[in-house]
């Protein structure tokens, strides 16, 4: 092990670690607010990267139809609820609120030749297509069962993940995709060369982590979300709309996932089912953070990334075993040091 190998592996580990950190943050966020372990978090990553790859290939991404279909279902559901309660006067408002963005996106994709869009707009379009899928997913699937136990919610998440993988295989096919690099330059520091792409990934990930920290610690809305996470009923009593909190947590998670996809797309080949392994690694990091602490989860993610990178150099055949075994001592430590609090019963 010399200096060159060390810096190379560290750079590689920090880059993948940054992606895992974003996933871990989203997992902690969604779990804290809604008690859902979002197994499909990694699927937002692959969906956005594959959407961007499709746009870059000059084709219309089918994910926009997925969004349109999902949003329509949400609309039907909300209209049915409104009709049942005799609030049909709200129908136009519901339609306007739920369908404007998906319809505009569908129109853009339908009317504009994707090949003519500038690169930055393609990136933006991919994020804007994937991000609303989060709230759509929440309203369709999780909101009606918001009071279910953590285990039931986890099983639902697994089912959703399998369904999304199926849809994604159908849309994108079984072969992998890679998006165009943002930059191909290298930063030369003596004999060590650091790729600008890695710097960009780590930089944006860190910026997002800081932004989330500021949002939750220093804004009223962030504090309201945190209140929902601590005690849902209590938050309801002081006037926090908890349903909206769930929907917004999913929106944030989807945005984080979509941005991660854009960041990781040029570095590696992504497949319709790559998301699962990414979620699992992020999940290991989230567990290191006790599914509650953002800074610990982020630190855990960088640890997972580094461990994976060094393990792939020394004993590549056992890489996954080593990474996932990391969970055991952490769980042991957590179970010895924390007091178990019975989940709020309903």
């Amino acid at each position: 092990m010399d200096w060159y190998v060390f810096t190379f592996l560290t750079q590689d580990g920090l880059t993948t670690g940054a992606i895992y950190a974003l996933i871990a943050l989203a997992l902690v966020l969604v779990f804290a607010v809604t008690r859902v372990i979002l197994v499909g978090q990694g699927d937002f990553v692959t969906l956005s990267a594959l959407t961007l790859a499709t746009l870059q290939a000059g084709k219309t991404p089918a994910t926009v139809w997925l969004l349109l279909g999902g949003a329509s279902l949400v609309c039907v559901k909300m209209l049915a609820a409104a009709a049942r309660e005799g609030r049909l006067a709200q129908a136009p408002r519901i339609l306007l609120m739920q369908m404007t963005l998906p319809c505009v996106l569908a129109l853009v994709c339908w009317l504009v030749e994707p090949a003519t869009l500038p690169g930055a707009l393609k990136v933006l379009l991919s994020i804007v297509i994937i991000a609303p899928l989060g709230p759509v997913l929440y309203r369709l699937v999780y909101q009606p069962v918001a009071q279910a136990s953590v285990l039931q919610l986890l099983i639902i998440s697994v089912a959703i993940h399998i369904a999304v993988i199926g849809i994604s295989l159908w849309i994108f096919g079984a072969e992998g995709f890679r998006t165009l690099p943002f930059t191909s330059g290298n930063l030369d520091l003596g004999e060590v060369s650091i790729s600008l792409q890695s710097v960009l990934v780590i930089g944006i990930a860190l910026a997002l982590i800081v932004a989330l920290y500021l949002f939750f610690g220093h804004t009223l809305y962030g504090k309201a979300l945190r209140a929902t996470a601590f005690n849902q009923r209590g938050a309801q009593l002081v006037g926090v709309p908890t349903d909206l909190a769930g929907s917004h947590a999913f929106l944030l998670a989807a945005i984080i996932g979509a941005v991660s996809g854009i960041l990781i797309g040029p570095i590696t080949t992504l497949y319709y089912d790559s998301g699962f392994l990414i979620t699992l690694k992020g999940f290991v990091a989230a567990i290191i953070g006790g599914m509650a602490s953002y800074p610990l989860a982020a630190a855990g993610a960088f640890l997972v990334g580094l461990l994976e990178s060094f393990a792939s150099f020394w004993v590549s055949a056992y890489k996954e075993v080593i990474v996932f075994t990391l969970v055991l001592p952490v769980l042991l430590w957590l179970s010895l040091t924390t007091h178990h609090v019975e989940e709020e019963q309903h």
């Binding site: 190998v5 190379f8 592996l9 590689d12 880059t15 993948t16 992606i19 079984a174 072969e175 992998g176 990781i264 570095i267 590696t268 080949t269 497949y271 089912d273 790559s274 699962f276 392994l277 990414i278 994976e308 990178s309 060094f310 393990a311 792939s312 150099f313 020394w314 590549s316 890489k319 996954e320």
Partner: peptide, 30 residues
């Protein structure tokens, strides 16, 4: 693994052995 997000470590290891040739035992895009 097929869905690994990086194989930089493995590639580095192989490269440092300075082999005359490398064989990649994988299928399709991976």
């Amino acid at each position: 693994n097929r869905t690994d997000s990086s194989v930089a470590g493995q590639a580095l290891r192989v490269n440092r052995g300075e082999p005359d040739a490398v064989l990649i035992g994988a299928t399709g895009t991976p």
